[in-house]
Write a protein that binds this DNA or RNA. Sequence first.
DNA 1: CTAGGGTTAG
Length: 727
Amino acid sequence: MKSIMRSILSNSRGNLKDNVHKIISILNDFTEKRLIVQGTIFHGYLIKKGISSQKQIAVKLLIMYLKSGKPNDINQMLKEFDGFNLVVRNCLISANLEWGKLDEARQLFDEMPERNEVSWTAIISGLLRYGRVEEAIWYFERNPFPSLFSWTAAISGLVQNGSSVKAMKLFVEMLQSGVLPNNVTLTSVIRACGELSDFNLGMCVLGLIVKVGFEHDLSVSNSLITFNLRLNDTVSAMTIFNRMQSKDVVSWTAILDMYVQMGELAEARRVFDEMPERNEVSWSTMISRYSQSGDAEEAVNLFIHMVQQGFKPNKSCFASVLSALASLEASVLGKIVHGHILKLGMERDAFIGSSLVDLYCKCGGTKDGRVAFDSILEKNVVCWNSMVGGYSLNNQLEEAKELFDKIPRKDNISWNSLITGYLEYEKFDEVFEVFSDMLLSGERPSKSTFSSVLCACASLASLERGKNLHGKAIKLGFHSDIFVDTALVDMYAKSGDVESSKKIFKRMPKRNEISWTAMIQGLAENGFAEEALAVFEEFEQTKSIAPNELLMLAVLFACSHCGLVDKGLYYFNSMEKVYHIQSNDRHYTCVVDMLSRSGRLSEAEKFILDMPCEPEVQAWAALLSGCKTYRNERMAERVAEKISELAEKNPGGYVLLSNVYASAGRWLDVLHMRKLMKEKGLKKSGGYSWIEVRNQPHFFYSQDGSHNESSEIYGVLELMRSEMVLK
DNA sequence: CTAGGGTTAG
């Protein structure tokens, strides 16, 4: 700052024009880098020098303040700059557009006493930037200055909105009206061809490019690289890149993205590290790619490096890093980044807002998430979905439903977010209700819709509904989708129809570790433990997929249920050595259960005591049940002692212990336990069972009430019993 | 007025 002042001062005796140029370039720099504090100090200096109201400088100062995002001072400024209204109003319009205050911008535009080409171009491109295509076209058609600029603004705006067909139509109209494109127009048009994945159209445009003489233009070449990447022609992309006489950051970033597209993230990183020049977009690209491919930590690391090296993150970059922070549930770092965003006035942006909503909700703070949601100015469907998803995630399902009903234009993800919320918290009736609303609304269910709703069927063992959905999925062409098929395998197995489950599993063209887990677990739970292990051996021979924790748990469960203790121990011991999977408490419980069931009680006890992590209460319970079966009362006494210790910490332990005492006939201890539970305000959740008859589940509760037709049911049972006794 | 980078569910 001081050095800038000094250089101005030393020049102050020189040519005034040179000084103005210098001041303007400094102000431009402050504006671009949003250095509002430095800018204000500099403003003070200019006032002192008596040149702050020089026309060009005054406008630049105004733009700097406008871009720094202080909408409340607008009116004051307008009054001060009442000499050159048109320019100032244009600035105001673009500033309002930048803040997303579209209606204010429109009002300002409509009330302008006179308008120039810049005013028209600003309002058209601004509206397009926020997807208000209809309004933009309305203005475009009334534009009295249809210059190359405004044609280009409209075309590029349409492309950015995904309305590439409309953009191409406009381009043809432009050519017909006798206006020739420049390199800027052409880059947008090539992008449109890429969005449409239309090779022939691209070739036509290429002909035009050569004809107009832009084939060696840097921007045009860059967009041609991207066009070829869109069409998966990496060879042509690389050829263009190699033939370019001059390359810039954009070219390098495009090639970086090419390697990502080819699945070579490491190679992309190498390009990134060796690029001759990097800017905030190159950083953004690398950060977002790490975030998208699941390496959130590296994304955040890179972001920190970027800031340390003095790069100013922009909206896209913030959106990417917030998404990475959300998946890491890093609320502390998230709040720091949020602070910076607030300082820059970017929290009103839809992309950043959505990420903030997601971040806070993933960290459990739906209230903070809602604040972030409410501060977004122009909400798109993603913002709504993030908030609905956030409520769903945190079991605030009423809020989720209420907000969902307010979404102006719902998309597939809106429906799925609500459905997964209900599924997660086992509100299965609501899952089906929302699903049928979805069908009624005309929204086509997607693969993830099917996998969620099928999962609800699996949890309810609702075979009829599951079969119905299976039919619908086939009709919609999802019959060989890996997610849908896996859900079907699980649904049929959980509903007891192992044959159908096996049939679907067998004809799956592709399987992932979840598919294999569903099949192995399904077979084991239905009493086909040996077959489950055979499937696991088949899995091992594929060698293409590594098993995960859940798959190994299913395998151990199978071993435990067919008495193959040594095999189970073998698999357990090879988990870390062979498969590099850290065994968790649930795996240990499974092994304890396995040993206890086969009577190897002292081994089980030693195993439990040697565990590197805290054993689950269930592990002790499994051992205790073994003690009971094999009548080892002394060990039972020790284990019960241990369980009651754990019960202090784990409320589930009381329930378990009271059951253990009950089965041992120690009723006094049972009473004691119940009393303790009551004192601690614990309730034993009632067990129940259910069957489904014609899509209608019938519940049977272990405690009160049971079933409202229980007398009839018992009547029939009695009848059947007497029949059986007679024969 | 521009090419390269952005958010949500599974």
